[in-house]
Write a protein that binds this DNA or RNA. Structure first.
Length: 512
RNA sequence: CGGGGUGUGGCUCAGUUUGGUAGAGCGCUUGUCUGGGGGACAAGAGAUCGCAGGUUCAAAUCCUGUCACCCCGACCA
């Protein structure tokens, strides 16, 4: 058992932090609520970026970049928006530092108009779109940006909620309401497929209640995931902004009818929170478990030997194994590649830069096992003298920690791709089984309270969304309406709180 | 921002009540024996005790302020 990771059953919050630390994913920064994303963590983010970016491009989007700083006045142009974000904005008020009498530095050069550090970019992008869009021929505008944003949160947790976080935000403008709605749902689907296919994270698609909507949106759609402790995590949102922002920022165009019309806009985003979702959905008491599709290292190889002649034999066998897996050329390249502390790295897949690491560090094999296990590497291979003799190797699976003996000849690129795919599928199945087993339908408010208290998870029930009622449930159970799911198999029923007839079920859960 | 807790080598902590030369274990370095799930022995390196003031002959320890982190609330991707 990992001695540096508290078991989930004892303290889930501590376990989460321990997994991040053991996996070297992130660290706290000197500034409150901010996070340093370490190479292991950033590589996961890069994998997420690469995958999502391709999906955005497949659906016709292009990347651009808008500035970090936004005039304060922009935020106030959309009433709901300013109300939603005003409380968590960082503001730039000065342009320089001056030495004061006692030798300390103090801000000087007060700005005429304060600038805010973007909490999201609807406003500045709306401003630019108003200049770029003149005619229906300029539409749709389909732009995404990869950026950092800042929201001065009261309480932060690594990856799940940090003052500054990385994300992508798509911002589109369309000629018609229908097109904007289609776009909003299209991108929700992109997110949902990505979550399931690449993160092995089953999500529920649905729309938010007005109470939970993005400030300034007409409609907000969400993908909701369920974590191992029974709490929900909003993993991505897609907003139909209607004409609210085009009205506030004058995004209008001359239509086919030769009249001025306001454009219809959308926005959608996912953030580094997804890494938190990955951790909480798949990892175990031994540490991080990464879905192969986003694992920076897909295989670690641990040589085992006593004497020098054993070592030479083992090294020869591993070289041969590597040649089979990555080819002679890459083995030669790997030999020349800089690598710290006795780690040899070879690229298994040049398109993703996913690596195979051979661990020649001079530490004991047990240490190496824990080392790679805690970093979530999907597979480990051990090669020792006994294996060389029998022409076999030991394969250990991170997903279920099982091991098997395989002949050297088995190790081919197709074989590795195959077992990675199997592991990926197993993680999804496992997470889906958990999610489905933790989703319960209730018929009364008392029953819901009982379930939330005893088991957590997703609670489906008939409920008529309403600000006061949602607040009441939140106060009494800490649960919120995560979404009104698209899948509505239950038909009509009575609201568990008011008894009114209602057509749809909602999903309640306690959320991060 | 309110309540509670914690800041001491890279990590986990002791020492603070009662002021008096900076401690342990793990990790790190070197060497030997080792090596199939966190090894043994030996010798080393490494901290102005979160930061800033103050009290005192003397501060990790007492006082004031401040910053950060953790837990619980309110707020949120």
């Amino acid at each position: 058992m990992a001695r540096n990771i508290k078991p989930r059953s004892e303290d889930y919050a501590q376990w989460y932090l321990d997994v991040i630390k053991a996996g070297e994913l992130a660290d706290h920064s000197p500034v409150r609520g901010c996070m340093v994303i370490r190479p292991e963590g950033f590589a996961v983010w890069e994998a997420i970026q690469k995958d999502l970016d391709a999906r955005f491009k497949e659906t016709g989007h292009v990347n651009a970049y808008f500035p970090l700083l936004i005039p304060q006045s922009f935020l106030t142009k959309e009433a709901q928006h300013v109300e939603g974000f005003a409380m968590e904005c960082a503001i730039v008020t000065h342009s320089k530092l001056e030495k004061s009498g006692d030798g300390t530095l103090r801000p000087a050069g007060a700005l005429e108009e304060p600038l805010i550090v973007r909490p999201t970019s609807e406003t500045v992008i709306g401003h630019m779109y108003s200049q770029w869009v003149q005619s229906y021929r300029d539409l749709p505008v389909l732009i995404n940006q990869w950026a950092n944003v800042m929201r001065w949160e009261m309480r932060t947790r690594l990856f799940l909620r940090t003052s500054e976080f990385l994300w992508q935000e798509g911002h589109t403008a369309h000629e018609t309401a229908e097109e904007a709605q289609e776009e909003t749902l299209r991108m929700l689907d992109v997110y949902a497929s990505f979550a399931e296919e690449s993160l092995a994270l089953p999500v529920v698609k649905g729309r938010k209640t007005p109470f939970e909507r993005f400030p300034g949106a007409e409609e907000t759609y969400t993908i909701e995931g369920l974590m191992q402790d029974g709490k929900a995590l909003q993993c991505g949102t897609s907003h139909n902004l209607g004409q609210n922002f085009s009205r506030a920022f004058d995004i209008d165009y001359l239509g086919r009818d030769n009249k001025q019309h306001l454009a219809w806009t959308t926005s959608w985003g996912v953030s580094t929170r997804l890494i938190g979702a990955l951790i909480m959905a798949h990892s175990d008491d031994e540490g991080l478990v990464l879905p192969p599709k986003v694992a920076p290292i897909v295989l670690s190889v641990i040589p085992i030997f006593r004497k020098d002649e054993d070592k030479a034999q083992v090294a020869a066998a591993i070289d041969a194994l590597m040649s089979q897996l990555v080819g002679e050329g890459e083995v030669a390249a790997g030999e020349k590649r800089l690598s710290p502390g006795g780690l040899k790295t070879y690229f298994f897949d040049k398109s993703t830069h996913q690596k195979i690491v051979v661990d020649w560090r001079s530490v004991r094999p047990g240490d190496k096992q824990y080392h790679w296990e805690q970093r979530g590497v999907p597979f480990r291979i051990e090669v020792g003298p006994r294996d060389v003799e029998k022409q076999t190797f030991v394969l250990k699976r991170r997903v279920d920690r099982e091991k098997e003996f395989l002949p050297f000849a088995a190790a081919t690129p197709d074989w590795l791709r195959g077992i990675l795919d199997v592991a990926q599928a197993e993680l999804l199945t496992r997470a889906r089984t958990f999610r489905d087993g933790s989703t319960r339908r209730v018929k009364s408010y008392d029953e819901m309270k009982e379930v939330l208290k005893e088991e957590g998870g997703f609670v489906r029930c008939h409920f008529k969304p309403d600000r006061a009622r949602e607040q009441q449930v939140k106060d009494e159970t800490k649960a919120t309406v995560r979404c009104i799911p698209f899948e509505q198999e239950a038909g009509g029923g009575k609201c568990i709180l008011s008894g009114e007839d209602c057509d749809e079920e909602v999903i309640f859960a306690q959320a991060y």
